[in-house]
Measured scan of single mutants.
Amino acid sequence: KQVQVGDEKYTFDTPEEARKFAEKVAKEKNLKVTEKNGNFHVE
């Protein structure tokens, strides 16, 4: 599963790991997490 933050992409083995990372980054940057096709976008 992938997490996209701006132009950066991070790959994780499980959706749970990806979601945790996305939520942590979103909180730090005051952004929101959206899920698209099983991948997460922080925007």
Rank of each mutant, 00 (worst) to 15 (best):
R19F: 09
K1C: 13
E28F: 05
G38R: 00
Y10W: 11
K29M: 15
K1Q: 10
T14W: 03
Q2D: 09
Y10S: 01
E17C: 08
E16R: 04
Y10G: 02
V5Y: 09
Q4H: 15
F21S: 00
A18Q: 01
E23K: 05
P15Q: 13
H41P: 02
V3R: 00
G6T: 02
V5L: 07
Q2V: 15
T14P: 00
N30Q: 08
Y10N: 02
N30F: 07
E17H: 04
K36D: 09
L31T: 08
K36I: 14
E43R: 07
V5H: 05
T11W: 15
D13C: 08
K20S: 12
T14Q: 05
N39F: 11
E43L: 11
A26C: 04
F40R: 02
E17G: 05
N37A: 06
E16Q: 08
Q2S: 13
T11E: 10
Y10V: 04
V5G: 01
K24L: 11
E35W: 11
R19N: 04
N37W: 06
T11G: 06
E35C: 13
G6A: 06
N37E: 10
N30P: 03
P15V: 15
H41Q: 09
K32M: 11
V25N: 03
E28I: 08
N37L: 07
G38E: 04
L31S: 08
T11N: 10
N37S: 05
G38H: 04
R19D: 02
N30T: 04
E23H: 10
E8R: 14
T14D: 12
N39W: 14
V5C: 09
P15D: 10
V33A: 05
V3K: 00
Q4W: 15
G6P: 01
T34F: 14
G38W: 00
L31W: 15
D7G: 11
V3D: 01
R19C: 06
P15G: 09
E17F: 01
L31N: 05
E43Y: 13
K9S: 12
E43V: 14
K24R: 11
N30G: 15
V33T: 03
A22T: 01
G38F: 03
K24D: 10
H41D: 05
F12H: 00
A18V: 01
T11R: 08
A26W: 03
E16S: 07
V33N: 02
V33H: 02
H41R: 10
T34G: 04
N39K: 10
Y10D: 01
F40Y: 13
V42Y: 02
A18P: 00
V3Q: 01
E16F: 06
E16P: 00
N30Y: 06
K20G: 08
K1H: 15
D13T: 09
K29F: 14
K1I: 15
F12Q: 00
E8L: 14
K20Q: 13
D7Q: 12
E16N: 05
F12I: 00
E16K: 04
F40L: 12
V42C: 06
K9H: 13
F21L: 01
T11P: 04
E8A: 12
T34Y: 14
D7L: 12
E43W: 11
K24V: 07
K32V: 14
F21V: 00
K32Q: 12
N30M: 06
D13S: 12
E43M: 12
E23F: 12
V25W: 08
A18D: 01
T14F: 05
E8H: 13
P15H: 14
F40S: 03
V5T: 03
A22E: 00
D7M: 12
L31V: 08
L31Y: 10
K32A: 10
F21E: 01
E35L: 14
E43D: 12
